[in-house]
Design a binder for these strands. Structure first.
Lengths: 137, 137
DNA sequence: TAATTTTTGCACTAATGTTGCAATTAATTT
DNA sequence: AAATTAATTGCAACATTAGTGCAAAAATTA
């Protein structure tokens, strides 16, 4: 089984308390996390800036990915599949529950193909579905 | 042809300078606009707060819609179709060009259906594709 | 374990969004 | 068309969220 240090080393990152703890949080959370969630769940053990930088680093290294939202917040979730550094394979659908506000990665649901107009070149596609999640139903 | 005052009146809004000007901006822009773009393009003729409130009002009235992004900004675009107050029919795909950073509404491309896992109820689905737009190709 | 590199936390700065309230402007009524 | 009423605007103050430089601390390397 992969431990946090393994994952960090694999990405060429030094193993530090903050990185281990924050990665831990992602590993034990099935939904997505916002910066604020992380601060809450670490009881502010780390500086705000450290959290920002850790999230940035994780995104760059392909450990987590960002989820688009319409409410001016960035949500982050673990990359479950093989994301290489600087290149994400984040092709699953994200679900935001309008009742409990949780953001869930639907790893089984892949983003369907779309036909773009001529001369548009697709690099990535993200899909966000809002509705009621299984727990709130 | 529909003028800005018409559109505003139709939504039950008083016709004011700021609303006319901001609506104008949307009408003459094919892409999406962020709060900052609007401030730039109106040469700060209106207070920051007025712009915020105008955008909010327009969203509530179904004149514009918000586009999800991963970069902690909200983009707004005209609702081309029949959006009623408080209920958007915003089922088209949005395209963000990674070269020129423009956000474009692909009105012809509708968001494909997705099958959600059992017990998930869909309310809305948004899709954002990033890549190279026709102008940058 | 010492030297080097990286990361962290602090202080400061900047950008972004919100609220109350008086002044202004638009709509309504007479 | 003027007066009344209702809605909107702008200012000031505040709150939140994010970014940067740099010295101290921790992690990695030698």
């Amino acid at each position: 089984m992969k431990t946090q240090p393994d994952i960090l080393k694999q990405s060429g990152l030094s193993v530090t308390e903050s990185r281990k703890k924050i990665l831990d949080l992602f590993l034990e959370t099935d939904g997505a996390l916002a910066h604020a969630d992380i601060e809450k769940n670490t009881s502010s053990a780390f500086d705000r800036v450290t959290v920002y930088r850790t999230l940035q680093t994780f995104v760059e290294k392909g450990i987590i990915h960002q989820i688009p939202t319409t409410d001016n917040s960035i949500m982050y979730a673990l990359c479950k599949h093989n994301c290489e550094q600087g290149h994400h394979h984040d092709d699953h659908v994200h679900f935001i529950c309008s009742n409990c506000d949780k953001t869930i990665c639907l790893d089984e649901v892949t983003v369907p193909e779309v036909k773009l107009p001529k001369n548009f070149i697709k690099q990535q596609a993200a899909m966000v579905v809002t509705g009621i999640c299984e727990d709130c139903k």
